[in-house]
């Protein structure tokens, strides 16, 4: 599904990703963990196609093709989705309108017919109900005045509606209480499939109790420094990062 090869990336003069290698198979759920400031969000933005970063070396292959030359919208159409750690607030754009425009833009790019409005509304309402979201949120401007937890749910709602193939979840657990975490994890788990992969970025093991990963990778100073199975997450939970990264943080 995804292969990152010896990737180097910088913002301005600061090099943040420094020789990152990571491979994610079809159907795999990979967790990326690491202390604050390791470059986890940077990796997620780069995957989604942010123009803020300059790739100086390496490549990202998605289903065997490099995606470095294509922009965020085109990547979304290919099935790449990012649930943002900090979703943007956009006053003046209604949430529902945004969902519709996004879905239709992707359909148009794939030469599929535009959504039938009433079917779309029904679908959105059903999905929002499953995520236990308040309907009134859908009428409000995009993310404006949403609580941290509401924003995270709204990200997962977008993911469910857009039906992507490769999902990056950046600290989706932060801001969620345990009940909300369960609901959101159920939403994610329902999407697990042999042709869909996940990159789940988290700071804590907690989320991984609900979304059980196939592989766990430790990201530090812009590189993957250790990989393992889900027991690595439990190890980190108990022992912290210090002995893995070989220095105090």
């Amino acid at each position: 599904m995804l292969e990152i090869k010896n990737l180097y990336a910088r913002i301005g003069e600061t090099e943040i990703i420094r020789g990152l290698d990571l491979k994610i198979e079809d159907g795999e759920v990979a967790a990326v963990m690491g202390p604050n400031g390791s470059g986890k969000s940077t990796l997620s933005y780069i995957l989604a196609g942010s123009k803020n970063y300059k790739i100086t070396k390496g490549d990202i292959l998605y289903n065997g093709q490099s995606i470095l030359g294509i922009n965020a919208a085109e990547r979304a159409v290919l099935g790449i989705f990012l649930a943002f750690q900090y979703p943007m607030e956009i006053p003046g754009v209604a949430m529902m309108e945004f969902l519709k425009v996004g879905m239709n833009a992707q359909r148009k790019a794939r030469k599929e017919p535009a959504l039938n409005v009433s079917e779309f509304l029904k679908h959105v309402k059903a999905m929002a109900a499953r995520l236990e979201m308040d309907m009134s949120m859908l009428k409000r401007p995009l993310n404006v005045g949403f609580s941290g937890g509401e924003k995270k749910r709204a990200e997962i709602l977008q993911m469910v509606l857009l039906n992507p193939k490769f999902c990056v979840l950046d600290e989706t657990d932060s801001g969620l209480d345990v009940d909300a975490l369960k609901t959101v994890a159920e939403g994610v788990n329902a999407l697990r499939a042999s042709d869909r992969s996940f990159l789940v970025i988290t700071h804590y093991q907690r989320l991984l109790d609900y979304i059980v990963p196939d592989t766990v990778h430790v990201l530090y100073k812009g590189r993957i420094i250790k990989s393992g199975d889900k027991s690595l997450a439990s190890y980190l939970e108990q022992n912290g990062y210090t002995d893995i990264i070989g220095e105090p943080i």
Partner: peptide
């Protein structure tokens, strides 16, 4: 960042810009 957010949902750049101007 707002532009990137809209584009990350598959909205082409020109359309995303227009949405932000309209907003």
């Amino acid at each position: 960042d707002q532009l990137f957010y809209l584009m990350a949902r598959g909205i082409p750049e020109a359309q995303a810009r227009a949405m932000l101007v309209k907003a």
